[in-house]
Simulated scan of single mutants.
Amino acid sequence: MKSGTAIKIILSIVVALTIFHFSILFKIIPYEITWGGRLKTDSEMYVFELISIVINLLLGTTLLIKGNYLKPIIRLSVVNVILWIFLILFGLNTIGNLFAETALEKSFSILTLALSILIWIVLKAKDNEHTIE
């Protein structure tokens, strides 16, 4: 798989996840089925969901820069460091989701594993292979 294709797939997933988190934030989806079933109050949910949305926006922006959709506002080396952090984060999240209390959260382990693999593909490509056609 080409890096540009991996970036497109990840961006699609990020958009879907952001919509998912907004759905929780606006109580379309009950927060009790997320975060391993550990959230107990609305205020906890608001904090966790806002953090999730910000993290998704950071990942999306980083990928838009890497894929040459956005003019680089940070150096490529910083973009790569951010992507390595996300690779580690998604790897650990995959393990955490496997031990979640709800089936929904457990099913997200497949998604976080896929994101880990796709980010790995992006990171292993040569810097000039990221252009999205």
Results as ranks from 00 to 15, higher is better:
residue 45 M to T: 06
residue 37 G to A: 09
residue 61 T to E: 07
residue 114 A to K: 05
residue 112 T to W: 05
residue 46 Y to S: 05
residue 57 L to G: 09
residue 64 L to Q: 14
residue 105 E to G: 14
residue 1 M to H: 07
residue 126 K to D: 14
residue 8 K to S: 10
residue 96 G to M: 07
residue 17 L to C: 14
residue 117 I to P: 00
residue 43 S to N: 10
residue 102 T to D: 00
residue 5 T to H: 09
residue 83 L to C: 05
residue 7 I to Y: 04
residue 117 I to L: 10
residue 58 L to Q: 02
residue 34 T to I: 09
residue 20 F to N: 15
residue 130 H to G: 11
residue 127 D to E: 15
residue 15 V to Y: 12
residue 84 W to M: 12
residue 3 S to H: 01
residue 68 N to F: 04
residue 115 L to T: 01
residue 103 A to K: 14
residue 125 A to G: 01
residue 112 T to S: 06
residue 94 T to E: 01
residue 97 N to Y: 10
residue 43 S to L: 14
residue 6 A to M: 04
residue 123 L to V: 05
residue 83 L to Q: 05
residue 91 G to A: 00
residue 95 I to C: 03
residue 114 A to E: 02
residue 15 V to Q: 10
residue 104 L to H: 01
residue 55 I to V: 13
residue 47 V to K: 14
residue 112 T to E: 00
residue 48 F to C: 10
residue 3 S to T: 11
residue 3 S to I: 03
residue 33 I to K: 12
residue 17 L to T: 03
residue 15 V to F: 13
residue 62 T to C: 12
residue 118 L to I: 07
residue 83 L to V: 01
residue 22 F to D: 01
residue 47 V to E: 01
residue 29 I to V: 15
residue 56 N to Y: 06
residue 87 L to P: 00
residue 128 N to V: 03
residue 67 G to R: 05
residue 82 I to A: 09
residue 45 M to D: 03
residue 9 I to T: 14
residue 47 V to S: 09
residue 48 F to L: 10
residue 35 W to N: 12
residue 117 I to M: 01
residue 33 I to W: 04
residue 105 E to S: 15
residue 2 K to N: 14
residue 77 S to A: 11
residue 14 V to M: 07
residue 25 L to C: 07
residue 115 L to N: 02
residue 111 L to V: 15
residue 73 I to P: 01
residue 19 I to K: 11
residue 6 A to N: 06
residue 112 T to I: 03
residue 130 H to Q: 10
residue 17 L to K: 14
residue 80 N to I: 02
residue 10 I to R: 03
residue 92 L to F: 11
residue 84 W to D: 04
residue 125 A to M: 01
residue 15 V to G: 08
residue 37 G to C: 09
residue 8 K to F: 06
residue 81 V to K: 13
residue 34 T to M: 13
residue 112 T to V: 01
residue 93 N to P: 00
residue 2 K to S: 14
residue 111 L to R: 08
residue 25 L to S: 06
residue 110 I to K: 08
residue 49 E to L: 07
residue 3 S to G: 09
residue 34 T to Q: 10
residue 23 S to A: 15
residue 119 I to N: 01
residue 98 L to K: 09
residue 102 T to K: 07
residue 80 N to T: 07
residue 100 A to C: 12
residue 45 M to F: 03
residue 90 F to T: 00
residue 7 I to W: 05
residue 24 I to L: 13
residue 44 E to P: 08
residue 127 D to R: 13
residue 90 F to A: 00
residue 40 K to P: 02
residue 110 I to F: 15
residue 55 I to W: 00
residue 31 Y to H: 12
residue 25 L to F: 14
residue 22 F to I: 15
residue 34 T to C: 14
residue 120 W to G: 05
residue 113 L to F: 14
residue 49 E to P: 06
residue 23 S to P: 04
residue 58 L to A: 07
residue 83 L to P: 01
residue 94 T to Y: 06
residue 98 L to W: 09
residue 120 W to P: 02
residue 69 Y to W: 11
residue 62 T to M: 08
residue 46 Y to T: 08
residue 51 I to E: 08
residue 58 L to F: 03
residue 10 I to K: 04
residue 24 I to E: 09
residue 66 K to F: 06
